[in-house]
Simulated scan of single mutants.
Amino acid sequence: MSSADRLLLFLHLGFAIFALGPLTAATMATPRYIRRAQPGVVRYLNRATRVYGLLTLGIFLFGALLAHGRFDQMWLSASMTLFIVALVLLFIVERDQRKAVHKLEVADAERRPAPAAAAPQSAAETAAAETAGGGAVTAPGEGPAAGAADAGPTTPEPAPRAPLGEPAKVETGRIATISGVVALIWLVILVLMVWNA
């Protein structure tokens, strides 16, 4: 093996080690943080998927240069085809991560309580209003019902909250499935390379 081939092999393996490991970790950790409804973490994992996904192109490039045009070998063609399939699947994962971040942010905004329309009166303001009214005396049975005075202000029942991570349930399942398939593809390519090296 010439020194140029050694350099290409070093770059090929270096990109494989430093790109595939973090990429696989980012895609496989995404469903957990979607279920925990943490859009900030999912956004970070989406960025990591994009960056390391682009770095995996170096693996393909240096591997193709290392082949010296001998693409008629079955294992090499199979490896390259599987690699392209994995890249297409990673595009789907990256898209689903973005959709999940958007859905989690919308669900988080809907969960926040709306600002109160009018602040309730304090006890001092209520007493002042009664005094200003002239202290009119009401006959028994003419005033408000006894239970109504103790009831206090009524507030509407809050809407039931959706379970955490529920808004992006479809994306969670798809990301988990596809990231598992992509990890399996990396292992098959590794076996083909080691077996035929």
Rank of each mutant, 00 (worst) to 15 (best):
V191T: 11
L23P: 06
A48F: 00
F15I: 03
G58T: 07
F15C: 08
R174V: 01
A16R: 10
E125G: 04
M80I: 13
A86V: 06
A117C: 05
E94L: 09
V191M: 09
M28C: 13
G173S: 05
L61I: 14
M193K: 05
E105F: 00
T56V: 02
P22Y: 01
R47H: 14
L190A: 14
P113L: 05
M80F: 12
A100E: 01
M80D: 06
R47M: 07
F91A: 08
G173W: 05
F15P: 06
I84K: 08
V181N: 10
T172G: 06
T172V: 02
T138S: 10
M74E: 07
Q38G: 07
P113V: 01
A197Y: 14
I175W: 13
D150T: 15
S77G: 11
A25N: 07
A123C: 09
A16C: 12
A159E: 15
V101Y: 03
N46T: 09
P156L: 15
Y52C: 08
L54D: 02
A119G: 10
A109S: 02
A146W: 07
G165R: 03
P31V: 01
D72K: 09
S3T: 09
L54F: 10
Q97I: 00
P140V: 07
T138P: 09
A151G: 14
I175M: 10
Q121N: 10
T126L: 14
V41E: 11
L192I: 03
G173L: 10
F18G: 14
H102R: 13
L9F: 14
I185M: 11
L55M: 14
K103I: 00
L187A: 11
P22M: 00
L9P: 04
A64I: 01
L190E: 02
T49L: 13
L9W: 12
A26I: 03
A26Y: 05
R111I: 08
P160S: 14
P115W: 03
G134S: 04
A132Q: 11
H12V: 02
P39N: 01
P163W: 10
W75G: 01
F10S: 04
E171T: 03
T56L: 03
R47S: 03
R50D: 12
A86F: 00
A148H: 08
P158E: 11
A119C: 03
E105V: 02
V41C: 07
A100H: 01
S122L: 07
G135F: 08
L164A: 15
G180K: 13
L184V: 15
A127I: 02
I189Q: 06
G173R: 05
P153E: 07
A129P: 04
M28F: 06
V51S: 06
G165L: 06
V42T: 05
M74N: 08
A128F: 10
R174P: 01
G152M: 10
V41M: 04
A78H: 06
L187W: 12
L82R: 14
P22I: 00
H102E: 09
R47T: 05
G133S: 13
F83A: 12
H68I: 02
H102V: 08
G69N: 04
A16D: 08
S79C: 04
L11R: 14
G180M: 08
F83Y: 13
T177W: 12
L184R: 13
G165M: 04
R43V: 01
A145F: 07
R98K: 13
A176E: 15
F10Y: 09
L82T: 14
L8Y: 06
